[in-house]
């Protein structure tokens, strides 16, 4: 689905990704774990073309094409979705209006009929209810004054409505209460199918109890230093990243 090959990237003058390789398979849930500051968010920004990150070497192949030269909106329209670790607040822009525009852009891109305002409102209401969000999320401004957990649920809402093909969730489980973690996980599980790939970046094994990942990757110092099955989490929890570092 996506093949990340030998990526070197820097932010400003600081080199952060140092020859990172990662292959994301269709229909699978991949998890990345790794110490603070190791480059997890930088990797996700590189995938969506964030202006902070300069990729100096390597390629990211998606559907057989190197996407590094394409614009962020083009990547999005082609099915790449990222939920930021800290979603930005945009006062004045209505949450529903924003999301409908995003969906309509995608439908236009795919040559489909655009969902009209009434249909969209219905869709939005359904999802808001399903995710246990407050009904006023429909009329409020995008992430404006949302609590941490509300922002994360809003990201899941976007994911469910936009139906992307590659979904990157950067610490979607941080700051969630117990119920929210469950609802968000259910949302993730609803997305899982044979055509889609999920990449979940996390520090905690709790979410993994709900979403049953296929692969665990350990990112350290700008590289994937280890890949394994779900059992790898146990080792990490018991021995920490230090242990992995030693035996690799």
């Amino acid at each position: 689905m996506m093949n990340i090959k030998n990526i070197h990237a820097k932010i400003g003058d600081k080199v952060i990704l140092k020859g990172l390789n990662l292959e994301l398979e269709k229909g699978k849930i991949h998890v990345i774990m790794g110490p603070n500051g190791s480059g997890k968010s930088t990797l996700s920004k590189a995938i969506v073309g964030h202006f902070d990150v300069e990729v100096t070497e390597g390629e990211i192949l998606y559907k057989g094409k190197n996407i590094l030269e394409t614009s962020p909106e083009e990547r999005a329209l082609n099915g790449i979705f990222l939920s930021f670790q800290n979603p930005v607040e945009i006062p004045g822009v209505n949450n529903t209006y924003f999301l409908r525009t995003a969906l309509n852009e995608k439908e236009k891109h795919e040559g489909k009929k655009e969902t009209n305002a009434a249909e969209f409102l219905k869709l939005m209401r359904q999802h808001v209810e399903q995710l246990g969000m407050k009904p006023d999320m429909i009329s409020r401004a995008l992430n404006d004054g949302f609590s941490g957990g509300e922002k994360k649920r809003n990201e899941i809402l976007q994911m469910e409505i936009l139906q992307p093909e590659i979904i990157i969730l950067d610490e979607i489980d941080s700051g969630l209460d117990i119920d929210a973690l469950k609802t968000v996980s259910e949302g993730i599980n609803r997305m899982k199918n044979t055509e889609r790939t999920l990449l979940v970046i996390t520090h905690y094994s709790r979410i993994l109890d709900y979403i049953h990942p296929d692969y665990i990757h350990v990112l350290q110092d700008g590289q994937i230093i280890k890949t394994g099955g779900p059992e790898l989490v146990k080792t990490l929890e018991a021995e920490g990243y230090q242990a992995i570092n030693k035996d690799s």
Binding site: P72, G92, V93, L99, E105, K106, L162
Partner: peptide, 19 residues
């Protein structure tokens, strides 16, 4: 953030300004 949801840069500017 807006572009990364498939909205072109000019529409993104206009969305924020209209807001």
């Amino acid at each position: 953030y807006l572009r990364q949801h498939g909205i072109s840069e000019e529409n993104a500017v206009s969305m924020i300004v209209h807001g």
